[in-house]
């Protein structure tokens, strides 16, 4: 299914391949950390590393839950009939990015021996995000702008908690994807760019 999505977006393919390669690097680094800690534990050295790796998986799980929510929001809003075709087209591109993030995060969690957190039901997301209150395209864009801002800051604000540098790099990549979404949506709303430096974080 993911392959089909990639094939359907030829313009995206090389960027996506690059992204996956980098995510692959992150997998390598993260995996090594988990594996290396076993013998080191015997030497009495690796305990913190084990704890760190466990913490990193926790961060990944939270990030994955965030992506699940974003995917549900775009999918439900996208299917609502509220969006004009040109806006829907952009929403679907962003949806594709969130699915790419989801897949990378879930793979990393699996590689670390964890079970990736599952999405909630659409009914739950609809209630939690109050999606029933969306009446116009403008409502949808405002909600999406808020969620993308929140997601960007969530990734930026968790980098300091990550032990693995490969994961920190991945989080920087994902947060900048979300920042691009935010910027495009914010511009569509007719809002100016914020004046002070350090828009996120």
């Amino acid at each position: 299914m993911t392959t089909t999505e990639n094939d359907a977006q030829p313009a995206d393919t090389s960027a996506r391949r690059k992204f996956l390669q980098t995510a692959g690097l992150a997998v390598g680094g993260f995996g090594m950390l988990a594996v290396a800690s076993a013998p080191a534990l015997a030497a009495g050295k690796a305990k913190p590393k084990m704890a760190d790796a466990k913490g990193d998986v926790g961060v990944l799980q939270g990030a994955l839950a965030l992506e699940h929510e974003g995917i549900a929001a775009y999918t439900i809003a996208g299917g609502s009939g509220l969006l004009t075709p040109d806006v829907l087209k952009i929403a679907l591109v962003f949806l594709g990015h969130h699915k790419g993030h989801r897949d990378a995060l879930a793979n990393l969690i699996r590689k670390a021996g964890g079970a990736p957190v599952e999405p909630k039901t659409d009914a739950q997301y609809t209630a939690e995000l109050n999606l029933g209150a969306l009446k116009t395209q403008g409502d949808v864009v405002i909600l999406a702008t808020k969620l993308e801002m929140g997601a960007t800051n969530a990734y930026v604000g968790q980098i300091a908690a990550l032990q693995d540098h490969g994961l920190a790099h991945l989080f920087a990549q994902i947060s900048t994807d979300e920042a691009v979404h935010w910027a495009i949506l914010n511009n569509a709303l007719g809002n100016a760019a914020p004046t002070p430096a350090f828009i996120f974080g």
Binding site: K146, M149, G150
Partner: peptide, 16 residues
């Protein structure tokens, strides 16, 4: 709050 916590939290709904 909305910018920094709003990715995961809402005032009136359990989310992430």
């Amino acid at each position: 709050y909305e910018g920094t916590c709003g990715g995961c939290h809402s005032v009136d709904a359990n989310r992430i």
